[in-house]
Design a protein around this nucleic acid. Structure first.
Lengths: 332, 332
DNA sequence: TTGTAAGCGTTATCAC
DNA sequence: GTGATAACGCTTACAA
């Protein structure tokens, strides 16, 4: 079966290419008779638009790039999956770029996306503020940032969960359940949402008259060395009776590690994570966590990006999506 | 900053567009002097190839489609991530399509991919054999299947883990640790790799002189009703002392459910899953599983697909990648 | 070694 | 209502 072009359809239907194009895109004027005729031959032949040609001519690619740190992380996977589905339903295809939190890779991907002439860009999380100006030629590429600050707010939209609120509520839950010495567990490298979560933790302490001392109330986890880090910290701070983990990866790791150390959770130490990873329901004890509203994040993001692309609305500067605390056994 | 075309570069460098094209693609002949001159202005201007134009002219898109059932499943996410990285390093970009195991969505995605003129296709898993002929126009699109049988082997490559071996070894591990009544837990809808796993289970029973009776040695799990299904089954078959779960989602769910029912794992019932999901290390007890070699699957797949695209080699018909059994607490 | 020009499949501007 | 045709940016014979 050969590939048909609009010219073939024109010949077969006995009309001109212009008319075929009008029928396909349903613009301009044409008689009902020709519409039927053209549509019929399109059906017979199985004609499909050649997007390379359409893109070239219209200077539009009907595709959107997504920059994401790590798609094997459940939260990111789910978010990207949801966004992709919505975009597909709007006639856009998605190019997913896994930056692995690496600035060089990020730039390489951006250049590729620019070459492909993407119509818009969605930037998800990442260690530092996102600077669109690293792409000189794409100065006016519509883009939005999810859970990552743009280095220049102007002309873009920043969408994020209410990390502050989530962390605040989680911390208060620890305190209300009796914790007097809560500790926040985080990584060295911290994203803008991580900072918000940390602020929420600190303010919850403040509100409950617990003085935040980074020496006593914060432990920096080195990936792959969580056992030694946590062991050392708890030796120096045996009073610790609650941990707020900045995400569920740390949360689950901390849980396993605490059990290995002979600590009882939640009896000795209460624990709450962040992101509501499905595995939280299968750990022992089950892990309390903060759930982000993935569907809403995705929907709002796509809506705003498409608006920017069609210039239907000038972008709002920032949108905050509520989160919800999910209490399970680890913080009883 | 405006967008430069090859024509701009030609004017700025004082040569013709043909020469610029030759320099960029390093083919044809040109003097060292012009090469330097052209490359210099390209650097100054930040010129980037317009892929829509290049694609149109060359009838090649430098992009590959991936059909995958569910990217929020860790195994799939990791596999897709690895493939995407390798492809990017070969100058290809990837369009990831999440079919949600839905035939209509699959077809819609295939049409979109065809319109975009993808150079090749990677099909990952899925409930039934993959039929490229559902796309009449793309009869000669190079494609490979991972963990999913092509409905017509001709001209393609089938790449899969050795599911049979993994299931066989897992089942024997159960038996060797004392199980006399092993049961396989699976879904209603079963993929080609699921069938292989089931065969491995059955043959391991045979080899150990246990007669396989689907009534006694097989439980069909309905998602969201695992508790009731499993409870009913164990009531009818109290002799059950080992479960081989066809994947880790079922494995972890089964584990949680068994504990909820007051069964001790591995004392009362031993359990082994499939896929070696990271959460297997954080469950209680930790879950034994079978690990697929994601890196090798990805590498072999890309290599074969690119060979098909460049016609460097005629496709082998099928490639089996070894798996490894990871024993943890749940099967002691 | 370099330039000219055709043509890839579309859309959009005109003319009729 | 419909048809010719230019143009999008690029590669590639073919000339020079």
């Amino acid at each position: 079966m050969k590939k048909y072009s609009i010219k073939d359809i024109a010949n077969l239907s006995g009309v001109s290419v212009a008319t075929v194009s009008r029928v396909i895109n349903d613009n301009g004027r044409f008689s009902e008779a020709t519409r039927k005729k053209v549509l019929a031959t399109i059906n017979e032949t199985g004609y499909q638009t050649n997007f390379s040609a359409k893109n070239l001519r219209m200077n539009k690619s009907f595709s959107i790039g997504i920059l994401v740190p790590d798609i094997s992380n459940y939260f990111f996977a789910k978010l990207v999956q949801t966004i992709e589905e919505i975009l597909f339903n709007h006639g856009y295809s998605t190019v997913i770029c896994n930056t692995a939190r690496n600035a060089d890779k990020e730039l390489a991907y951006l250049k590729m996306l620019e070459s492909k002439g993407i119509d818009g860009l969605i930037v998800i999380s990442g260690p530092k503020a996102f600077d669109i100006k690293q792409l000189p030629a794409a100065k006016n590429l519509p883009f939005i940032c999810i859970d990552r600050q743009p280095s220049d707010q102007h002309g873009t939209v920043f969408i994020a969960s209410n990390h502050y609120q989530g962390a605040f509520e989680a911390t208060e839950a620890l305190i209300n359940n009796g914790c007097q010495h809560p500790v926040i567990a985080l990584h060295q490298q911290i994203s803008s949402s991580g900072i918000e979560r940390r602020n929420g933790f600190i303010d919850a302490l403040k509100k409950n008259n617990i003085f935040f001392n980074p020496e006593h109330n914060q432990v920096t986890i080195e990936t792959d060395h969580i056992l030694t880090t946590l062991q050392a910290f708890l030796k120096d701070h045996p009073e610790t009776d609650g941990i707020f983990a900045i995400n569920d990866t740390i949360g689950i790791e901390a849980l396993t590690t605490l059990l290995k150390m002979g600590k009882a959770v939640p009896e000795d130490i209460k624990l709450i994570g962040f992101d509501d990873d499905p595995q939280d329901r299968h750990s022992f004890p089950t892990l309390s966590s903060v759930r982000q509203n993935v569907d809403q994040l995705a929907e709002v993001s796509v809506k705003n990006l498409l608006n920017m692309i069609t210039h239907e609305a000038s972008p709002e500067s920032s949108i905050i999506i509520p989160v919800s605390l999910v209490l399970r056994e680890s913080s009883r």
